[in-house]
Design a protein around this nucleic acid. Sequence first.
DNA 1: CAGAATCCACGGCGATACTG
DNA 2: CAGTATCGCCGTGGATTCTG
Lengths: 134, 134
Amino acid sequence: MVRKACSAAPNVLSPQCPTRMVLDLIADKWTTLVIYLLSQGTRRYGELQREVGGISQKMLTQTLRKLEHDGLVKRVVYPEVPPRTEYSLTELGTTLREPLGALCKWAVEHLPDVEKARKAGARQRARASEALSA
Amino acid sequence: MVRKACSAAPNVLSPQCPTRMVLDLIADKWTTLVIYLLSQGTRRYGELQREVGGISQKMLTQTLRKLEHDGLVKRVVYPEVPPRTEYSLTELGTTLREPLGALCKWAVEHLPDVEKARKAGARQRARASEALSA
DNA sequence: CAGAATCCACGGCGATACTG
DNA sequence: CAGTATCGCCGTGGATTCTG
């Protein structure tokens, strides 16, 4: 495991730990979706809004701006009329595909387990107390 | 608006896609921290609260409950006085360590890049307008 | 010690309207 | 088309209090 990431103690719990940053990065409902889409190729603003489905312009713009600010997404504006803006992953942005992919892979593989646990959870919870006293 | 789930095409954009579930799972400031801690060994409620630092009992309990409900965390209550509760990762929970670790690894490796981008962004943004008019 | 319950503030986020 | 600006809901989450 990655230790000395933080100052002295390998503490993920301190806010300045890089782990925290990743969370801020992906712990956003939309961010991951946008990255996913862009990992498939360059998109225009409108395309993204249409494809993500359910996202408001506010959120899309906000997400895009954050991503751009973090150097993960490249924004190219063509000073034309009508306006055209194209978004794409930067070099850095593409490096996120793998770890993100690993996570998705986990989801696909373990989804059944989680669903099973969710269903069993309700029943099991009811008998939890009695099981312990036995 | 429910198009085909992601049965055939892994459409991350549809809400019922497993990817969405992962997001719901980790897209929580605390969840990842808790999992990280538990991946190091069993913890008591109070220990978690102290170690995570900054988390309220409400959030801790809530997070723990969700994790338990999803079958990632095992909760053992000892009917003693004073009460003692121990939390630990389930078998399923430990499988999350790897993909989560990959993410952390990414963070550590690319943190400098992101920070650089963040710093450069501010300056660059200032010259963006003038650059266009030039 | 572990947790449930309540109150409340802030901010996320969507909807809408306007601009270049 | 690609945004920005404004408003308002409501969910998230913190602080506090109470219980077994």
